[in-house]
Design a protein around this nucleic acid. Sequence first.
RNA 1: UCCAGAGUAGCUCAAUGGUAGAGCAAGCGACUGUUAAUCGCUAGGUUGUAGGUUCAAGUCCUACCUCUGGAGCCA
Length: 464
Amino acid sequence: MTDRIKRTTVRDALRSDHEMEEILIKGWIRTRRDSKTFSFLEINDGSCLKNLQVIVDEGIADRAIMENVATGAAVSVIGRLIPSQGKNQTWEVTAKNLELIGKCAPSYPLQKKGHSVEFLREIAHLRPRTNLFGCVFRIRSRLAQAVHQFFQQRDFFYIHTPIITAGDCEGAGELFKVTTLDPVANKSRIEEQSYHKDFFGKPTFLTVSGQLEAEVFATSLSNVYTFGPTFRAENSNTSRHASEFWMIEPEMAFYDLQDNMDLAEAFIKELIRQVLTTCEEDLSLLGKFVDRGLQDRLNFVLERPFTRIRHSEAVTLLKSANQSFEFPVEEGLNLQSEHERWLTEKHFKCPVTIYNYPSKIKPFYMRRNDDGQTTAAMDVLVPGIGEIIGGSQREERLDYLLENMTTHGLKEEDYDWYLDLRRYGSVPHSGFGLGFERMLMFVTGITNIRDVIPFVRTPGNAEF
RNA sequence: UCCAGAGUAGCUCAAUGGUAGAGCAAGCGACUGUUAAUCGCUAGGUUGUAGGUUCAAGUCCUACCUCUGGAGCCA
């Protein structure tokens, strides 16, 4: 019987502009309230935040079935969609037929009332069934879509850079080693010897960035972007770091640092605009229970230009700040979290783009400025999260690049193909990396990165 | 990895070194076009782990584990 009618999602049912004599709804029961001769079921199928209220009169389903129609169970309902007599919904369904698809054991850990995000993290396989995580992951999907939309509208090409890479890019940061060798069986061997027998015949790692590969395509297709998983084996235990995360890395030929900063700002604003206009309902829940000022803050960021200051100006501001910092502020030193927070949260109270960083604290591929002291690097900082974008104009001049590699202790032969880009028709180009989860944290108000990734990987944790 | 804090019922939390408690959830019942429904009853515990101090440890000490917040690394 149920096979002949097309299933309607809860979202479509609640958006209906007319009564429906017969509707088929499938989903999970969020809660049940019993009256003397009938029951109220709240059904959610994840298609939207809201539940659909179903009225089941006595006798519609067997007593044995009704006993199992409880919180968490999966059901199928055929009934009439009619205007609701109740207060909290416009439409409701009076059931003509109720089937139990999958019953729910009484040990089901999700209750009607609020759970802490810490507890829900332990049951990551069930947490998308909560209002909060349903909202987060619907928004995550929209945000990913918005990323592609932004670049595709600007004729950028989406490049799939490798996840397994050879060689440890710029020697910085801890990498995950990829190997088919058994570390126990080979423990007595010298590492170099073992690599000859390894799958790729050389050391390989999970990617920490697709940037160098993206540069290949920027110097051929002009405007490109990557959007994929990224891996860092750093022992970072903070609310803003994960071992596996998603990063977006646009790379543009003929862009200088100014162009790069302009694009970064337009990108962040467009992502916010998309979420504001397409995720209104989900945002409203987050605005109510997670971050009271969420929508106001997003609108505020959208309307104002980001503040842009040179690193040296930031240092001057911080030095004259009427605030004592734990760490010293010095020209030539990197800014600490507390300094970034002061700039973006206390002083400017908006996103801040800092550029022209001291050369010695930046990697080899960034372009040297004419002053000889700074590089054409830029970071975008946002209130509450800190660094959300890091980028630069790349060093397109072969001789300077080689010089940088020497000072960073890198071997020329390891970057031969990268250097070829400078040998054969080199052009100025720029790019940046945006942490997808950090952006999602910013638009949802969620303060821990573990709560915006479906299945988080952090040091010591690879569950599910 | 470093600093700080916390681990007690399924969840959120109480408990001067002296018999382990509540709210919610669950189970049973009553009531009701209800909507975080309401009311009554029932059950639920090796107090993170291992040692130690003490007549007596959830409570004090040591080590370890896990989680949370902050720092560093960064996106």
